[in-house]
């Protein structure tokens, strides 16, 4: 028996919108720790890891570890029927081939049940090693989204370089090239507008902008994004989910042969 009650149901709606472009089908894993997902895109270039901790739910009951295969587009279709202020409860019985999403309006005057068929998904679980990163950039998520969008109108790839001067995003294409430099900025009154750069050593890596743009769909979950970079390692683009956990995107670099 599984019953997870999330008062801020809009979080789940946003999570789905953030990942459904990248991944079509995925297993949601439920355990005593929380509600989680790890899935790669079909080309094995990008991976999404989601964690919503048990403590973040108003009610969290998970009698035994359960893995539920869901089509994310179908799940998104159902969650779009929940109001932004609705409380969402996820329910499943042991051995059942369906999951139920229950939406309650804040005034409790409307309650809806949506039952969705589960699917068997063979998915490979990757062990992601803990890495020391050469540079960690924390910046406003809206700014990062804007940069990725702007650069993708010029080129297909972005070179992210971190130096003492700041973090530089560069691209080039048929019509020309572009460089955007963001400097460290902690003097702002609002912490959510800060740009903070922790650099052990300079690093420069190349990534496909198509994926970066897809990751920025998570921007509504968090005011800030953290980008962790190391030479010849996948970049980690992390959006914290208030009080609950995170959504992390890993993207393999493009490397000169």
């Amino acid at each position: 028996m599984l019953e997870l009650r999330l008062v801020q149901g809009s979080l789940l709606k946003k999570v789905l919108e953030a990942i459904r472009e990248l991944v079509t089908d995925a297993n949601f894993d439920c355990s005593g720790t929380g509600f989680s997902l790890q899935a790669m895109d079909s080309s094995h270039v990008a991976l999404v890891a989601l964690l919503l901790r048990a403590e973040g739910f108003e009610h969290y009951r998970c009698d035994r570890n359960l893995s539920m295969g869901m089509n994310l587009n179908n799940m998104a279709k159902m969650l779009r029927c929940a109001g932004n202020d609705d409380i969402i409860t996820i329910k499943a019985d042991d051995g059942s081939d369906t999951v139920t999403f229950m939406f309650e309006s804040p005034k409790q005057d409307k309650i809806a049940d949506f039952e969705m068929k589960l699917m068997d998904i063979d998915s490979e679980h990757l062990g992601i090693p803990d890495s020391e990163y050469q540079a960690i950039v924390r910046m406003p998520s809206a700014e990062f989204m804007r940069i990725c969008k702007d650069l993708s109108s010029i080129g297909d790839t972005v070179i992210i370089s971190v130096t003492k001067e700041g973090v530089k995003f560069s691209t080039s294409g048929e019509i020309g090239s572009a460089n955007i430099v963001c400097r460290q900025n902690q003097t702002v009154d609002k912490p959510e507008e800060a740009t903070v750069i922790e650099m052990q050593e300079p690093v420069s890596l190349t990534f496909a902008l198509r994926y970066m743009n897809s990751f920025t769909k998570a921007s509504s979950l968090s005011d800030q994004v953290t980008i962790s970079l190391s030479s010849e390692l996948p970049v980690v683009v992390e959006y914290k989910i208030a009080e609950m956990g995170y959504i992390r995107f890993y993207l393999a670099p493009k490397i000169e042969e």
Partner: peptide, 14 residues
């Protein structure tokens, strides 16, 4: 020109 790597070479299957 650069080549797009896949995640399999960085993360081990578990």
């Amino acid at each position: 020109t650069s080549t797009q790597k896949t995640l399999d070479i960085f993360f081990r299957s578990s």
